[in-house]
Design a protein around this nucleic acid. Structure first.
Length: 278
DNA sequence: AGACACCTGTAT
DNA sequence: ATACAGGTGTCT
């Protein structure tokens, strides 16, 4: 489910709701979802910062303690001010004391149970392999076409789609935003990375940033499950150009959009608007 | 690079 | 009954 814009939206909603709160207790409803690697306390510690890196959410607590979450396909955080009976697929409950003294619950809910939460000390962050090996943030101003070109060319023989989905090349893209960005850039998902020159890569980076920025502004794409911490859906699904539109007419040229499998994922593109190069 | 595994729900 | 879904870790 969640890619960079959805995780960023969850981050923003959590920041508004629980920044500065103290963790009273953590309840493990379903075993195995919370990986507790820390030797230190969590009880009583305040949440000092809520950050995002790629599709990971990082909550910094006092004393260098942390909570890191990956929502994978169907994970959600639900913020509740009133105690409620546990629902199906509620896996972890964080009991919080808000800065004003009121209490609240933060529940990690995940239908498919692919999501994970780690409790660890900041010194252990490099033990989360997927986090340690992330490529650059697409919206980081320090990233430029030259850097992205170099990173992409480590995968010169693969498809553009596979390279964009590879979190070690660039962080945060998933199936929706890879397809949307390639459409905007006019590049075919099956095109070989090695055929891109620096100016192609600069255009691709600009398109990635355009799509991601608009999606963050729309508070993400809600196809089915995705909601923020207050159960609010995003609206970027109304701006999608290709994702989920296989067999429908291209919004740019009118030709029927192709539905392919690329890098093991359903991929939608326009053979007229997206160039294979040569 | 590709296949499969991990899960459950929904659509066909 | 089968296929598929916004992700990624591990094994060929």
């Amino acid at each position: 489910m969640p890619e960079l814009p959805e995780v960023e939206t969850v981050r923003q909603s959590l920041e508004t709701l629980i920044l500065g709160s103290r963790i009273l207790s953590i309840h493990e409803i379903t075993p195995g979802v919370l990986l507790d690697w820390s030797c230190g306390p969590a009880k009583g510690l305040a949440i000092c910062a809520i950050r995002r890196r790629g599709k990971y959410l990082l909550m910094e607590l006092e004393q260098g303690e942390m909570l890191v979450a990956h929502l994978r396909m169907t994970g959600q955080f639900n913020y509740l001010e009133q105690p409620t009976d546990p629902r199906k697929h509620d896996h972890i409950r964080f009991d919080l004391i808000l800065p004003d003294g009121r209490s609240a619950w933060l529940i990690f809910h995940d239908t498919r149970r692919f999501g994970r939460i780690w409790r660890l000390h900041e010194s252990q962050l490099d033990q989360i392999g997927g986090l340690a090996s992330l490529g650059p943030e697409p919206l980081d101003p320090a990233l430029n076409g030259t850097i992205l070109q170099a990173r992409l060319q480590r995968r010169a023989r693969t498809s553009l789609k596979a390279a964009l989905l590879d979190q070690t090349v660039i962080a945060g893209l998933g199936n929706i935003y890879a397809d949307e960005s390639l459409f905007l850039a006019g590049l075919h998902p099956n095109r070989t990375v090695g055929t891109l020159n620096t100016s192609d890569t600069e255009k691709l980076l600009a398109c990635l940033r355009m799509v991601l920025t608009k999606a963050v502004q729309a508070r993400g794409t809600s196809i089915k499950d995705y909601v923020d911490a207050l159960n609010v859906r995003g609206t970027f699904q109304y701006q999608l150009q290709v994702y989920g539109r296989g067999g429908l007419p291209c919004n740019r040229c009118g030709r029927t959009l192709d539905k392919l499998t690329v890098a093991g994922r359903t991929t939608v593109c326009c053979r007229s608007c997206q160039s294979m190069g040569e």
